[in-house]
Design a protein around this nucleic acid. Structure first.
Lengths: 201, 201
DNA sequence: TTTTGACCCTTGATAGAAAAAAGTCAAAAA
DNA sequence: TTTTTGACTTTTTTCTATCAAGGGTCAAAA
């Protein structure tokens, strides 16, 4: 039903706001309910448990991410530039949703459910397939040489994720990485991406 | 004094054996002393505290690492192959000393002392300088184009470390990464290294 | 100079209690 | 019939008090 879906979405939006500021574990179902001026059982009417709500939130975020990716037209733009655009999109999402610890190594137990891990895996694979398709196009256009696109997309994204991972790991142990660390990370990813593409020629 | 240095080394060797098997935090000064059939205060005669002993151990391991690196002659070998040799050396050390968590993200509080962090930083920089020198040679030989070697060495090593970091992060949560994960990690590092070098041409 | 037994003091693990949060349900409201 | 709720139960987390273990010291002996 449409009304039901609207309410579900409103709950997800409310949850996202709390999660973005306090993180998943530090947000209670009561707080989300209070924000929306409803009772806790109402939340449980739309979501069987907190994990499903978290799932809904993650799913929404990823669908926004892919929507943004797919909005970028990949004709009339070099592979390097296209990949940089993708890096910038990921960078914005990483900053915006940092408190949700979507990049792994999470202290949030809610992210450790098998269901959610599976979903993360699926999103990762979807992202890889999308990048592999981009590589495929670039091969057809003669921008890069013949490669195993699936494997290269995986290696490429893993090298990007590795940079992110190190930024989180070696960063100051504050709640957030500093603006400066963020900028350095972004620059390194762009540099590496450009070298990577050149290396595929 | 020579005798004193010998005893220091013996203690370090004994500590390494324990650390390799049980990790730093799970090894007590008493155990190290018992292994060497001396009393605990004897240890404290040679090392003012546990941190200094850990420092000695780390220092020994890094000096072994650099000794092995420097043994590889870097004439008559392509940059790609040389870098692969380095990756293999790091891989062996990573496996051998895995329990010491030298790759960061350590649960061992002993590794968090300022003194030791500084030392880690110095070793990282030494490694970067060594790699930068390698890149310098390759430029002179015309194997790769002109680049900022310091910056490239940093980016290169960080992309390698990133792969390692992800392996630790996403690996099974067992004590050790599996042989298979290790192999995959090694292959990815080699692949990335080769693409990176091609990208510098 | 080097080694040691005996000792102190700090820290980290453990368990049990208390608090908080997740989750349920019968009944009311829409 | 669908949605909402106050009051309730169960589970999880956090806090705290205790205690053993491990780091570190020292005076005396070798």
């Amino acid at each position: 039903m449409v009304e039901t879906d609207k309410k579900r979405d409103a709950i997800i939006e409310g949850a996202i706001k709390r999660f973005m500021h306090y993180g998943i574990n530090k947000t209670t179902m009561n707080e989300i309910a209070e924000d929306l001026s409803v009772s806790k059982p109402s939340l449980y009417y739309y979501f069987p448990d907190k994990n499903s709500l978290v799932f809904g939130v993650i799913d929404k975020i990823f669908s926004d991410y892919f929507a943004l990716m797919e909005k970028i037209p990949y004709t009339d733009i070099s592979l390097s530039d296209l990949l940089v655009s993708f890096i910038e999109i990921r960078h914005r999402f990483f900053q915006k949703y940092y408190m949700l610890h979507l990049s792994g190594g999470s202290p949030d137990s809610s992210l450790n459910s098998d269901e959610l891990k599976k979903h993360f895996m699926e999103m990762k694979e979807k992202n890889q397939r999308y990048h592999a398709a981009i590589f495929e196009q670039a091969i057809e256009k003669g921008e890069i040489g013949m490669i195993n696109t699936e494997k290269m997309a995986e290696l490429y994204l893993e090298s990007m994720a590795g940079i992110t991972s190190l930024c989180i790991l070696h960063g100051n142990k504050e709640l957030f990485p500093s603006k400066k660390e963020m900028k350095t990370m972004l620059e390194k990813q762009i540099d590496l991406s450009n070298i990577f593409v050149k290396g595929l020629k």
